[in-house]
Design a protein around this nucleic acid. Structure first.
Lengths: 260, 260
DNA sequence: CGTTAAGTTGAAGGCGCTCAACCGACGTGG
DNA sequence: CCACGTCGGTTGAGCGCCTTCAACTTAACG
């Protein structure tokens, strides 16, 4: 079921119980299909709903004065746009689908209701926001200190890890709807240069990339050249990692979940 | 009083009343002096206190594998380190003073207590966190899309605006404890190049910079070359901007604070 | 007055850019 | 069914921003 990605994503916060998972599954009903290029939010909007991505990818972006697009974040399946939109005034950036997909528009009132009812969900949404901030810091670190080869390798590591976190990567493969132009807008380099770097990564036997799919052929070496360490994603190791194996809850074996 | 910067900073969220301001002033007692180079937090720490900067500047940073430092954020007077440290596990970056200063270490329990007592403060702290995230996005945008000249101009605009927001900039002047090496670590460029860009900014009559002070000589033109628009700082215009004039509250004149 | 950190200047080189052309896949319409 | 237009990917040539290395000046401070 598509709405399991939502539970899978937030379960990485390590704070949810069966009741919270049910509530989240319930919240993620009624997805509607949207096409690539569809704007979820434009800069300056004051959205009255929160968007949840069930399928497909979206990007946060700003435009330069001369019309170039700079990508500032990725929304993968299971990700929410801005669970706390009520706190700020107007959106300072836009969000647009970069592939066909499926989204849910959750009314603000529903968000208020569910966070008031389930403190663990409220806390989890804030965890998610802080993780987003941490990812932003890592991107800034990347563009500030890594060359384009390591930068692209690092991006692939992150995207693969995040997709795997919601059960959408198997055998080192995951969807990769970004064009080379899009990748350039993420890393702040030209599409031509992205192409040359991709070919180096291919030639070095690290990845295969094409037809909308990324295949990481040598994860260990890719992580190595990227300097990738997934600590910044702040996933909490849960003792039992049985989510998504059959989409069903098991009564928690109640192991002492001792902090590591 | 130094602890007024804390109130001034959070008052930009536009959510505080007299009671909240008193509580915050009370929280910001007992600052202690720290020297430049003092680490507030190291990567991997699980701090049990929240740090508040009363005087001086600190930076968030990560180190590259070869020991280079990349700066990922600035903490100016009035800024808090990580009001929500309880949400994440371990710090994924360090924080260090880049000038002498004065800080307050607030125990976690005090934070929990005050946010539980004053919902407006709780909400304001989250506002502050979301603004930090917005700043991070703007930095990423900057390093990804602006050349070094516009980048440095933009940084100066931001720092001046933030200092002015807590009453620490007058007549286009504010403290600037960052060395040119530090500036390079913010922008991801070499110190040598920072020097050349600074000289261009000086030669163009936009700024004066030296002896720990930044003087913006032509703010309009500096904003223009930087493409600076302060919307991303999400300050809420309050009808009366009488903070800090005498450090005393006036009974709010109750003007209709009509949204623009 | 010596020492150290910060700032300044010059020369040479490389990473990534722009411009431009071309290829291939795909979808659409005549 | 083929022609054609479009979009994404690929390749080459030349250039420029920014880097590294190195030396030197200035400021701050004991």
């Amino acid at each position: 079921m598509a709405n399991d990605v939502f539970v899978a994503k937030l379960d990485q916060g390590g704070l949810l119980g069966p009741r919270e998972r049910d509530a989240l599954r319930n919240l993620a009903q009624n997805g509607r299909a949207v096409a690539r290029g569809h704007h979820l939010i434009r800069q300056g909007d004051r959205p009255e709903v929160v968007f949840l991505v069930l399928r497909g990818w979206a990007v946060r972006y700003k435009l330069t004065p001369d019309g170039q697009r700079q990508i500032l974040g990725m929304l993968l399946p299971g990700d929410l746009c801005h669970p706390q939109n009520f706190v700020l005034d107007a959106m300072d950036h836009g969000i647009v689908m970069v592939s066909d997909g499926e989204i849910v528009a959750i009314p603000k009132s529903r968000m208020v209701e569910i966070t008031a009812t389930y403190p663990a969900i409220d806390k989890t949404l804030w965890w998610s926001t802080l993780v987003d901030e941490s990812i932003l810091r890592e991107w800034l670190f990347s563009v500030g200190s890594r060359d384009s080869y390591a930068q692209l390798a690092h991006l692939f590591c992150e995207l693969h890890t995040r997709m795997a976190g919601v059960g959408l990567a198997t055998g080192g493969r995951c969807a990769m709807p970004l064009t080379q132009t899009d990748l350039g807008e993420v890393l702040g380099i030209s599409a031509v240069h992205v192409n040359r770097v991709v070919q180096r990564l291919r030639g070095d036997g690290l990845i295969a990339l094409g037809r909308g799919e990324l295949h990481i052929k040598d994860l260990a070496r890719l992580c190595d050249v990227a300097g990738f360490d997934d600590a910044y994603l702040h996933r909490r190791p849960r003792a039992e990692h049985d989510l998504l194996v059959d989409g069903r809850e098991r009564p928690s074996p109640r192991q002492p979940s001792g902090a590591v």
